[in-house]
Structures are given as C-alpha cells and as structure tokens.
Design a binder for these strands. Structure first.
Length: 940
RNA sequence: GCUGAAGUGGUGGAAUUGGUAGACACGUUGGACUUAAAAUCCAAUGUCCAUUAGGACGUACGGGUUCAAGUCCCGUCUUCAGUACCA
C-alpha cells in the first residue's frame, strides 16, 4: 500500500460528491451548528494559497462539529456582482454573466480539489435572478418602512400615513430628513398626492436624496473617496468634480444606537467591535441655537462641550453651509465667494490630508451669545465639515486645538474660562481636570456638573437641549453601473413607485454597451426594453412609454454590499420561491454560530449586514437581530518575494552575498525559480515563457557555485511575482498537505508569510502517518492490546487537539499530531484501538488520508460521521515527576521523584542529592520552596 | 493624534493557571545508504566562554513586584492594521 495522495484525494472527493456526504438537513434530532465563510467574489485570477486559509479553518471546525454530533450547515456561494467583470465587458464586449460563470467554474474546481465539506446543494450566487429577487424584495420592504424613535423599531409606512391623517406630523418621533416641514392633519389631507409622496420619502428607510458625490465625467461614474488620488481618478487619471446627484440612500443612521448596543451581545473580536464603535461614532453633548444679529436666521451647532459656552469667541460654518450666502455682508462677499470657490476645487480627501494649513474667511455677520448677548463673529472655514453635525461649530479657542489655531491665525480674541490654566501657548482640552471660571453660573464647576447645568440653562431660555450625535452617515445605495441588481422601481411624474413584489424578480436587461450613455446616464440607459407596463405588470420596450400606463424604470443599480447583506439567511433554504427562507428553516437554523472572514469588512459588509438583519427582525422576517454569534478574522498570508541584483546599466547579476557596495538594483523574480535555500534556478528563469527573453544575455556571478536571491515579505500579488498557486501545491504534495501546512504556518488571526519550502515538513508527517498503518506489502494494523504508553500518547493527543480546535489554535494541533505519530512510531504501535481513534482526530485536518485509512480498517461509510474519541484522564496519571531543581530561580538539574511524595520528603530528598550540595558549596539555604508536581526552588 | 494587535533563535512559530524558554517544523552542518542524485534514516544546531566538566548571557528597551517573570505592574521604543480637522 502506497500513499498515492493524488489518487486517494480524487477518490474521496468523488465519493463525497456522489454520496452528498455533507448535505445538511433542515431538521434533525441533533443540535444545529452553522459554520459560514465570507463568500468570495470570483475574480478572473483564481485562487492563490492565501485565499483558502479561512475556508480550511472553518472546514476543520465544521468537520469537528460533525464528529461531535452536530447537524452542521456549512454552505458556500459567490458574491458574483461586481466591477471587474463589468470592466472586462467594457474592454472586450463579453457579457459579464459569461465572465462570471467562467470564473465561478475555475473557483469551484480549485475549491473542490482542497476537499472542503461544503454543502454545495445550497450554493447561492448574488447575480442569479432567483437570488436577487430577494435583494429587490428587501429594498421594497425598506421603502415601505419608517423608523419610530419611540419604539426604536422599523414600522410600516401605513402606520405613519394614518398618524398624518389624524394628527399631522408634530407628534411623530421618527428618524427622518433634517428639513421636515411641520403640518397638521388638515394640511396633510389638503396636500396633493405628489406632495404627500415627497413628504413620505423623507421618512422612508430607503429614500431618494440629493447627495454630493465625486463625479468623473470622463468615466461617466461616481467614484468613492479612495478611488481618487490628488483630485484625479485612480483609474485613468481623469479630473473629478463634486456634483450633486439624486441617489437612493439607506437610512442606516436610524439603527446607529441599536448597531452600537448589539455589539455587546456578540462574540466578535474587540478590535472589530471597536472599529464599528468608532465608525458609528456616538458623541453625547448638546445642540445650541444662536440667533444671527439683524436677521431672522438661526444657527444650530452641535457641541460635546456645552460647559465651555462662555468661551465662545467666534462661530465657524462649513463653506457649503446653506446660510453662508444669506448672511454674508456685501463688503465681505468677494472674499467669501473666493474662498468657497477655492475649497470647492479641493476634494474631500485633499482637505482631510492637508490639516496643517489654516484657511477661512469672515462673513461680516454676527450671532448673539445666548447668555451674554455679546456679538460673536461668524467665519467660514474648511476645517468644519458640512457632513458632520450641523456643519457649524461654536468655536472655543481656549478649549479646542483647531479653534485655537484658527483664532491665532486670524487674530481672534481668546477668552480663558479655565481656572488656573495657562492658555498662552495652546488650548486646554483635558475634561477631567477642567474647572470652569469666568462663566457666570458655571463658575467653579467641573466638566460633568457644568455640562449638565449649561444644558439646563439653555433649555430654560429655549436655546438648546441635550443631544446625541452619531458619525454614521446614511449609505448611498445607487451605482451608475451595469453589473448589479436593478431596482424594482419605476417613475411616475418624477416620483419613485415600487413594483409589486408579486412580479419580482425584475431581471437585469440586455444592453449593447456597458458604458454610460452619451447623455451621461448610467449603462442601463442603453437598454431598449426597460420600461414598466403597469397594466400588464411586465417590463416592456421603451418605445411604449406613455406616462399613463407605461413608465420608465430606474437606471441605477444596487451597490456590491446589497447582495451580501442577507445571504447567510438564504443558505437556510436557498430554493425557496416564496420567501428568503421558510419560517421553519429560519427557526431551525436561527443564526450563524461561527463566521470566518477578513477584517477588511469591519465597517462595510459587517455593518450593512447587521443593519439589514435588524430591519428584517423588526419586520418579523428573521428570528434574531444579530446574524452571527461568533466571528473570527483570519490573517492574511503574505508572499515571500525573491530578488536578484543587477548592476546598474549592465546585464550582470550578482549573487546576494557578492553585492557589497556595488551599485545594484533589486529585481523581482518569480518565486517558483527559487528553492528552499534561496538559490536561483538560472536555467528555469532563462527558459521562462514570459520573461526568459530578458535574461538571454544575462551573466550571473555566483557564490559557491550558486546564485543566492534576496528575500522580502510582501502582500501576495501578481505584480510582485510572489503568488503561489494552490493547484501546483495540490499536484505536488496533495490537498491534505496544503490544508495541514496552511494551519501549521501560525495562528489563524495572524499575518504570516508563505514559504513553499516548509511544506515538506507536513508532507513527510503524512507519509509517516501512513506508515503507521501500512507497509508496501499491506496493512499492518493488528488487534494487539494497546500498551500504557500507547494509551497515554493517544489520550494526550485527544485532550490537546480538542482544546486546540475549541480555541481555534489549529497550528498547535498539527504539532501535536506530529508528536503523536513520532511517539507511536517509536513505540512500534500497531494496535487498532489506538490507530482507529487517531484517524478521527486527524480527519478534520487531513480528511482524505483519514478516509482512505478508515476504509482500509474495514469501516463502512465516511469517517466524517464517526464520533470524536472521548478523552480519559486516567491514562495520563503519572507515577513519577521529573522535578526541575532550581537555585535562586535558575534550573540546574532534574530529579525524578514519586508524584505522591510529601513536601517534606521532597525537600529531604533534594537536599540529600549530591548536586544540591555541589551547588550550595557549603552554604545553608535560606528557604526551600517546594511546589508538589511542579518545581523545587532553593533560595540562598 | 486616537483605537486595536503585536515584538521570543538564521526562519515560521510553541510555552491553558507566573514554575525546566525555544515544543513542532523549515533551514544549516556532519554522518549512514547510493556509482551518483532523489528519497529515507541518524546526530548536532539560541549567543558567548571553555578540550571536557561546566559557566555567563538571553523573550524590543529601562525599571518594579515575586522564592520564581516571555507571562503581572509602571515607563519608553518599534512594527502592523484601522480611523481621523467628528466640534
């Protein structure tokens, strides 16, 4: 019997697939366990060895839970809408659906050969109409809901209409737009239908709003902040301007508090929860109202320091603030306009990057201090952001660094309101040490007391109230792209109308071109059959649009995060045509027990998915309001790049050790031409299909007969030639070796470099494991009774591996297996009673070899259903302990003594030892510490 | 700046409660087998001193607590990640 891993692995992968070994059922006497990976975007490049890391970890856990008697749901699918397929379509004309299908086929082949225990019968693809039917359905539910701040829940929009009908909107406590006009029931009833729709839109959980976006006319699309470098598009280097556009938005801000509180109920890493907390950015303070002098205008500001109200010496508005044009005096108009123009040319990113330059302009207008009635100058400055708070701040230079710098720069007076603090050099912002002075009724109070009192006094005079502000902003939900979910929306007289859910899905239409139209409309503007017939309830030709029964459809598509925000629920019942999943399926599976994925989704996917889950919970669609109980972020596997060194301006390459002070430049070479000893395969390099030609005339100066390369750890990337393809590893060493090695590299959460050379270690472990069971001539396992040593090794291993899996410490259990196999080999163990349970321990990590040997031991069926061996502590009881004997804390020698020996006897035995006397050299010890079963320490 | 994680041999890393630092591997060196190579097996391998016996030093740095510190406490430095004129 040989360990022919390629044959064995293919055999078992086929077996699992044909027998549907890992198919999960939606009801069972067993307890349920749901293990989920973040599903991949199927890119054209395929997988590299870094991608499967998290999948291997979750697979080990899923297999372990099956051994432990759980009904395990372990699905996989594809986040298959996205930009790369669309860009490929623009370049080549190939339909993104075809590109996506091809890429998925590659992914599937690569995943299958690693031997994952996925239940592929539940696969979902976000770009399938049967899936995005539900993405569209959720959108409609959001449109038909508002958020009631009294109940802290989403409610049906009809309840809101009923209130308007009866009582107008004055008593409504809702999350809504800022510029709500108040009306009575009579006024509501008098509004036209269109006016009513406009008002309702200001309350809906998804709404149309004018949003300022980064618009790139050349590319015909909106860009995210991180797609812009120095005011130009990252792709192509085209100019980008700020532009107002009507876009769909999601009122995620309504859920800010619940998203914050919910973090306390889930077992996620602290760093991830902290990122989300920062992102939500709750700050508690007050809203203060200032009256503009000689005007009926008022300026509301948000401050976290109402206690410093008497330190206000000026106001600063964002240049975009709507009042700026209204209050600016004629004398100051030229200066203010020039400043506004200058800032509008800078992108938000540039403004943020350039923090040190202080700029601003005086409007010429004043507000009145709410208590002292003193006039306070109103400035504009770009350090105040239009998008946060009210876009206006009360500037207290003595207590805030930015206000201080601004005041100094423009020679604005600085009022000191802190007792015993010198502010001649810098502001004083230490809340804890604050004692207020020079502030009327706040004098002598600390921060806490003064804050409370200031809010109280503001409320008394109607100039403010306590307020909590969140940094979290509503999420723009429109994209000017083709390859995304179409909205189930058509427009009547400019107002959006939802298509009845009964007629979903609204399928993505075909287009001739994937670029924006000449008139600047999104790619769906190219579709010719893209109008909604309200009589027939179907999509019809644009020619039929008559604005009576046939209306134009929405041209934007949904963003990438739409489809990934509820997929974990869909896996529970993926074929269901009447619901995201049946109530029975959801009640059974509830939520994800273990979710594994990258930390880069901390403030994107993981926040949006929590938002939708909470919304669906409010609507009674899902049974829990947090979708994942436990979440682990796997670290990235980095590449180990290789460099050769070319002397400047020549074709001469020096081995690394010969560089000395020569003027050389390091050049990346493909890592596949470098062996474990950092030696370059020069012939391989010269014959490389892609780059071989570059080295035809190259001369390599060797040291000790070889050319050594330099090494550096970098992110794994095609451009650094350090990408390692798992296909190659699987072909050369097998999937079990790949799985073991990825785990053996180090702790799951950590960033760690890949080095293919090291894989020989785990590969020879598998060969040794095989040899425990089989020789060339056949199986060597016997019915011999296990020896105490055999049992000790086995049970030590059971205990350690079980604890390791529970702690997600997969790297240490691989070492434990190695130790066990080394020990059992040395013990010449052939006992089936030992070797059979050992296979179950190994099988989550190296399932193929485990299945093969399990079958060789004449077991029927898959090892995946075998139960996990039970640890028995009695085999580990030791008679003796090899005590380390230390002197002043330094271990000098060891001494074997019985476990049950008393403290006194241990001390006597140790003192009687000749080496003890040698160490003491005649001195009398001051103290002898004996910790039975652990250590002896002699002090003196 | 803030938040979080981390810093241990040539390399990846181990050390559940403070109790023999460097498990398990990679690499390196030497040896066996072989005409040779591969594969396999054996031995050595933290640094320094010492022929041996043994000793000194050693977990980023500086202090401290303790019989005993990689582990606990205080301070400093460095790296990585996220985030930021957030009022």
């Amino acid at each position: 019997m040989n360990y022919d891993f390629n044959k064995i692995e293919q055999k078992w992968q086929k077996y699992w697939s044909e027998n549907q070994t890992f198919k999960a059922v939606n009801n069972s006497d067993k307890p349920k366990y749901y293990v989920l990976d973040m599903f991949p975007y199927p890119s054209g490049a395929g997988l590299h060895v870094g991608h499967p890391l998290g999948y291997i970890a979750s697979d080990i856990y899923a297999r372990y839970k099956r051994h432990k008697g759980f009904n395990v749901l372990h699905p996989q699918g594809y986040d298959s809408f996205g930009l790369p397929a669309e860009q490929y379509a623009i370049q080549t004309g190939q339909h993104p659906a075809i590109t996506t299908k091809d890429n998925i086929a590659t992914y599937r082949r690569q995943l299958d050969q690693i031997g994952f225990s996925f239940d592929w019968s539940r696969e979902v693809r976000t770009s399938n109409a049967s899936y995005y039917k539900w993405t569209q359905w959720i959108f409609i539910q959001l449109f038909n809901s508002w958020f009631n701040n009294d109940t802290h829940k989403a409610e049906s929009i009809e309840t809101l209409e009923a209130i308007f009908e009866k009582a107008g909107n004055q008593t409504v406590n809702a999350v809504c737009d800022d510029d709500i006009v108040s009306f009575t029931a009579a006024q509501w009833q008098a509004f036209s239908s269109k006016e009513q729709q406009k008002i309702l839109l200001q309350y809906r959980l998804t709404y149309l709003a004018e949003t300022e976006v980064n618009w790139c006319p050349e590319l015909g699309t909106v860009l995210a902040n991180d797609e812009i470098v120095n005011g130009l598009s990252e792709r192509g280097g085209h100019p980008v301007i700020r532009k107002k556009m009507t876009q769909w938005s999601m009122r995620i801000s309504a859920y800010a508090e619940r998203l914050l509180q919910g973090l306390n109920t889930v077992d996620w890493t602290d760093s991830l929860k902290e990122s989300q907390r920062n992102w939500i950015g709750k700050s508690v303070g007050a809203s203060v109202r200032f009256n503009v002098k000689d005007s009926d205008a008022v300026i509301d500001v948000f401050t976290t320091r109402p206690d410093t109200i008497f330190g206000v010496s000026f106001m600063t508005l964002a240049p975009e603030h709507e009042l700026v044009s209204k209050i600016t005096t004629p004398e100051q108009k030229a200066e203010v306009d020039a400043y506004i123009l200058a800032t509008s040319k800078r992108s938000e990113r540039d403004r943020m990057a350039d923090v040190k330059t202080i700029s601003g302009a005086f409007t010429g207008a004043y507000v009145e201090h709410p208590f002292t009635k003193a006039p306070i100058a109103i400035w504009i400055g770009d350090y105040v952001l239009a998008g946060y708070g009210t876009g206006a701040v009360m500037s207290v230079p003595c207590g805030d660094d930015r206000d201080y710098a601004f005041a100094k720069h423009f020679n604005i007076p600085i009022i000191n309101i802190f007792d015993g603090v010198d502010i001649s050099e810098s502001a004083f912002s230490d809340k804890e040490k604050t004692i207020i002075a020079n502030s009327d009724f706040l004098d002598g109070m600390n921060y806490k007391k003064a804050t409370k009192r200031a809010i109280y006094e503001l409320e008394q005079i109607g100039h403010g109230m306590g307020k909590t502000n969140y940094r979290l902003r509503d999420a723009v939900f429109s994209r000017q792209r083709y390859w995304g979910e179409p909205f189930p929306v058509y427009y009547v007289d400019g107002m959006p109308q939802m298509i009845d859910a009964a007629f979903l899905p609204i399928a993505l239409p075909e287009v001739e071109k994937y670029l924006p139209t000449e008139t600047g409309e999104p790619p769906l503007g190219n579709a010719t059959i893209w109008a909604w017939d309200t009589a027939q309830n179907k999509v019809v030709s644009n020619n039929l649009i008559d604005h009576k029964t046939v209306f134009p459809l929405e041209l934007n598509t949904m963003p990438g995060w739409a489809g990934s925000s509820f997929y974990f629920n869909r896996y529970m019942d993926p074929e269901n045509n009447d619901a995201i999943a049946s109530k029975e399926a959801m009640d059974y599976w509830q939520d994800v027990d273990l979710y594994i994925g990258g930390s880069e989704h901390a403030t994107g996917h993981l926040l949006y998915a929590r938002f939708w889950q909470k919304f669906l919970f409010d609507k009674g669609v899902v049974p829990v309001d947090e979708f994942a109980k436990k979440l682990i972020n796997q670290g990235m596997i980095l590449g180990t790049s290789a460099f050769i060194y070319r002397e400047e301006g020549t074709q001469t390459y020096y081995s690394k050790g010969l560089i000395n002070d020569k003027n050389v430049q390091p050049i990346h070479v493909k890592v596949q031409y470098v062996n474990a000893s950092d030696e370059l395969d020069i012939d391989g390099l010269k014959n490389d299909g892609e780059f071989g030609a570059d080295y035809v005339n190259a001369e390599f100066i060797l040291e000790d007969g070889v050319c050594k390369v330099g090494r550096e750890v970098e992110k794994m990337s095609k451009s650094k030639y350090n990408v390692v393809n798992p296909d190659r590893i699987v072909a050369d060493y097998g999937a079990d070796s790949l799985r073991l090695y990825e785990m053996f590299l180090g702790p799951l959460e950590q960033y760690k470099p890949w080095n293919t050379a090291g894989i020989t270690g785990v590969h020879s472990f598998l060969k040794k494991l095989w040899k425990l069971y089989a020789t060339d001539s056949g199986l060597k396992v016997t019915d011999a009774a296990p020896t105490p040593d055999n049992l000790k090794t086995l049970h030590k291993t059971i205990k350690k591996v079980e604890a390791d899996i529970e702690n997600f410490s997969f790297n240490t259990s691989v070492s434990t297996f190695m130790i066990a196999v080394n020990e059992l080999g040395a013990q010449k163990c052939t006992s089936k009673d030992i070797l059979e349970p050992l296979l179950v321990l190994v099988s989550p990590y190296a399932p193929h070899i485990a299945e093969e040997l399990w079958a060789a031991l004449e077991n029927n069926g898959s090892i995946s259903t075998a139960s996990f061996p039970v640890f028995n502590a009695s085999y580990l009881v030791e008679q003796n302990k090899n005590y380390p004997i230390s002197f002043n804390g330094k271990m000098r020698f060891t001494m074997e003594l019985p476990m049950d020996m008393s403290k006194e006897d241990i001390e006597k035995a140790v003192m009687a030892h000749e080496k003890t006397q040698e160490q003491l050299a005649g001195r009398t010890p001051k103290k002898v510490i004996v910790v039975p079963g652990k250590i002896v320490n002699i002090v003196g």
